[in-house]
């Protein structure tokens, strides 16, 4: 297993190794030591590699991930797994703002808390946060799922499209056009599947509430002007 110590190796060398695995090689597991808050660690993965980052990272860790499995054994700065296409990103600690922003696919698991704008403009990504999330999360979320075991901050799901939000704790306030919705059997089943994929046990889907779009802001209608 290749080990990259970022206190002695330039980050670019590591990120480029992830994209240039020699033909015929079976070595798809990487370990990163001493990330010390570096930016863009393991960004741009385009093959099913496994990366274990031993420590905390800065901006845009695992950005644009397409098929990799990245675990951060620490906390992550802003924009972790931004625009993920597929694969899995796990943050063992906390994540800063806009975790999983604009993600189109894959699974992002945050074992601690995520701060503001978690899942902003999400487009298909599934995000599971074991702690709390901050304000303006899932803003303009188009599709995918955001599952929160703790509480959500202000203006959850503001101007939401079709992303589905599940929160187990308290929601400080809902954003414009976001409403609580009935939990139907298909939602409970999806939630059970996501919790299992995220390795969460001892939590039942029935403990969550579902939030989604009231669909009043899709097209401008003067009768809905108050909702903006």
């Amino acid at each position: 297993m290749p080990v990259f110590d970022l206190s002695t190796t330039p980050l670019r060398e590591f990120n480029s190794a992830l994209r240039n695995i020699p033909e015929g090689s079976n070595d798809f597991s990487f370990e990163v030591l001493n990330p010390r808050g570096s930016h863009a660690v393991a960004a741009g993965i385009d093959t099913p590699v496994t990366v274990d980052v031993q420590g905390s990272v800065g901006y845009y860790c695992a950005g644009m991930n397409d098929g990799g499995i990245v675990t951060v054994h620490g906390s992550a700065g802003p924009g972790v797994a931004e625009n993920m296409m597929s694969g899995t990103v796990v943050v063992e600690g906390d994540a800063s703002q806009y975790a999983g922003a604009t993600g189109r696919g894959g699974l992002l698991v945050i074992r601690g808390n995520a701060s503001s704008r978690c899942g902003i403009s999400m487009k298909g990504i599934d995000i599971v946060v074991l702690g709390n999330i901050g304000h303006m999360s899932a803003f303009m979320g188009q599709s995918g799922h955001l599952v929160v075991l703790g509480d959500a901050g202000e203006a959850l799901g503001d101007s939401l499209y079709e992303a589905k939000l599940f929160v187990r704790g308290k929601v400080k306030s809902l954003g414009a056009d976001c409403v609580e919705k009935d939990m139907r059997p298909e939602h409970l089943a999806k939630l059970a599947e996501l919790l299992e994929k995220a390795g969460v046990s001892g939590v039942r889907p029935e403990e969550f509430k579902r939030y989604g779009s009231a669909r009043k802001l899709y097209n401008f209608n003067i009768d809905n002007a108050d909702a903006y």
């Binding site: 010390r36 800065g58 906390s75 800063s96």
Partner: peptide, 18 residues
């Protein structure tokens, strides 16, 4: 950023928060 804090003594076991 966290990068600014990495050389502080005992940062590995500090309470770190936003």
């Amino acid at each position: 950023e966290y990068r600014a804090l990495v050389n502080l003594p005992g940062i590995e076991n500090a309470r770190v928060w936003e």
